[in-house]
Write a protein that binds this DNA or RNA. Structure first.
Lengths: 129, 129
DNA sequence: TTTGGTTCGATAATGATTTTCAGTAAGGAG
DNA sequence: CTCCTTACTGAAAATCATTATCGAACCAAA
């Protein structure tokens, strides 16, 4: 059976991503790793990130510009509070909301409901616009 | 100053979009309009849709597949409940939630907060998976 | 070291969206 | 109504992120 191998490339991607607190695109992450002297291919970075998302190690977030950004995160269900300026991300939970949305969806006849909740703003470290 | 002109193409896109209850991609909308006998360019459809989003006449939603889908909607603040199968969309509001998210964001030092909330599920008209 | 996979990564391909740019047509001025 | 000015149109080319190809590199183990 196909089992995953641990390579220095994958480890490097995981570490590089782990050093950040916000979301970053595959392209950008790759560019910075190359700039830092690590020789790996863009394809590999994409593969490593995709693997991490599948295994629940990272979250993927597709922005309105069509670019997908990634971030290390825990496996528990949570949502994100994201700074528009610096990209800093805070995870949070909203007790009661899960149930409320589910009830609302059911009242409209929807089943197998999932939800996507993201809050965007400017964090205290960044100048206000 | 640059003012907008009204063309039959823009009107046609607005009408075609208005006849639908769910989100649809620019490509798909264009394909159906052409199939229906209307001769207009894909570029024009993109432009018309972008204009409508800017003017608040429509909502744009970028999915995880990188495709942007559009839908006619009112200007009041609302969220969407979307069927994964047929694309049917229901608008809803969540009284109290707006305040809750804002308070949560502020407690983390974030300001100028906006949020994105989408619920996905299978509607009563579609077979469950 | 030979074998049988898995992984790498340069490059080509894909596919949605945008840009170009020359030709078309609103819509106000006369 | 006719003439302009300039936004609009749309076919084709350009972008750009992401994915597919496929031979080379690599790992574990027999």
């Amino acid at each position: 059976m196909t089992q995953k191998r641990s390579t220095w490339q994958k480890v490097a991607v995981r570490e590089e991503l782990g050093e950040r607190s916000g979301f970053i695109s595959a392209q950008q992450l790759h560019a910075e790793m190359v700039a830092a002297g690590q020789k790996l291919g863009l394809t590999t970075v994409y593969r490593a990130l995709t693997d991490m998302v599948e295994s629940g190690e990272a979250d993927a977030l597709t922005g309105s510009d069509g670019e997908t950004r990634y971030r290390i995160c825990g496996q528990e269900h949570h949502h994100h509070l994201i700074c528009n300026v610096c990209g800093k991300t805070v995870e949070f939970e909203l007790p009661g909301f899960e149930a409320a949305t589910k009830a609302l969806a059911l009242s409209h006849g929807f089943q197998e409901v999932s939800h996507s909740i993201e809050l965007f703003g400017t964090c205290s470290d960044c100048p206000r616009g």
